[in-house]
Design a binder for these strands. Structure first.
Lengths: 237, 237
DNA sequence: TTTTGAATGTCGTTG
DNA sequence: CAACGACGTTCAAAA
């Protein structure tokens, strides 16, 4: 059968379902009272409480509470899950290496456990990324300014790759830094590094820097002003 | 009852459970064939497929597939959920404002739906954060260098707050930037902005900049070198 | 494998 | 509220 569900199972029954679900690459959800221990890039303990725990066939483990978009604990894809029963508790270990880390979930009581066979899928199409923004500018460069001529994207410099490199109507080199949302000072810093790199590379040819974003913070505007860079507002539609 | 579960319910039955679960602040999990539409900060569509969908009483919505630690679609906490049945589909809308965004999940068939009352909880304690690292340095400043004297943490500058501000054995001002993991060029840029801010503030008193991290990338090392900053290696234990 | 930077980042803290 | 930086960030693409 494609879905198996148990309600308040014994640890033994839950264990057997877990074993076969891990084996058969099923998507697992559990709800119950448990404590959680993590050790790896950091270390944490989560005392007893009711949580929703998810195990995916790709090795992902997620521990969700009542609230927040983020799991309170997790294990990334590529981990391997292993269940056992000991000391009257149902223990599920998820481990991985590089970096070495381990997540232990100890169920005191399992309220619910479900195993799903996921066969049917389709992929996400997303609109409105930075890549979209770049494409829009390449399609109609006048969005930046009249006569702007894009020469390269991802142009390499010693300071890293420039989003868009081009020339203005007067033939002066222009570095364009793209952000799809409101930006802070770090974007201005990044632009500065790129402009300096290009200026050096072109034997001190004066180079313009343009920050393209839907909006910028006040401090960022000051920095741009101070460094003689420009800001170009664009809508994310 | 604290847990309610339905297996292959009619849309009508699922709808009624959803209504009462949203009303009573329950944690909800659903599994079934659905498509998902999002519009807000970006826009996306996800064609029909089997997914695990979670609704939390704080307004969070999560759409999980077979794989990945991240939900393929979601709505942040603070959203409000609303269910309806139309055109033979079970529709669940999650909306919020500021920014305005909306997530629509359209179930063609619900395999499973469960509502949980979460009453029992306890909080996470995490070890190994940047805060820990700062505390370790304040406890034994010689980790940075002999005679280093921390004066303030989170010291304000025009470029933002400095992690640790202090003086070296010779009385020269020192800006310390902490990172708990391997860092790239942006950390060096950040340090540069802080050092420049302090230098200006102290009427051009020459100021040292030290980047503290477990390791750094090659390019970052070059930048530090170029700008006459230093790197101090520390272990995250 | 490591490096790099985007993300519907999310989440705290601070002004 | 906006702003700013950390995060066990995660993720995908490139070197």
């Amino acid at each position: 059968m494609s879905t198996t569900r148990l309600y308040r199972p014994t640890h033994r029954d839950a264990f057997e379902l877990l074993e076969s679900a891990f084996e058969n690459g099923r998507l697992l959800t559990m709800f119950g009272r448990c404590e959680v221990h993590y050790e790896g890039r950091a270390a944490s303990t989560l005392g007893p409480g009711q949580r929703l725990v998810i195990y995916k066939p790709d090795g992902t483990a997620l521990v969700h509470t009542n609230e927040s978009r983020e799991p309170v604990n997790w294990q990334p894809p590529g981990s391997t899950h292993n269940a056992s029963v000991r000391d009257g508790q149902l223990q599920i270990q998820s481990t991985r290496s590089n970096p070495t880390e381990q997540l232990d979930v100890l169920f005191e009581r399992v309220e619910t456990i479900s195993a799903y066979a996921v066969t049917d899928r389709s992929d996400l199409t997303l609109i409105g990324s930075e890549e979209d923004l770049r494409q829009r500018i390449l399609d109609s460069p006048d969005v930046i300014e009249d006569g702007f001529d894009p020469i390269a994207t991802e142009r390499q410099t010693t300071a890293g790759p420039i989003d868009i490199f081009g020339k203005d109507a007067a033939g002066r080199p222009v570095v364009v830094e793209l952000k799809r949302r409101r930006v802070g000072p770090s974007a201005a810093s990044q632009l500065k590094r790129y402009v300096e790199a290009i200026t050096t590379e072109l034997s001190n040819t004066s180079t313009r820097g343009i920050l393209v974003a839907p909006s910028i913070t006040d401090r960022t505007a000051s920095l741009l002003d101070e460094w003689d860079f420009e800001y170009c507002s664009v809508d994310i539609e």
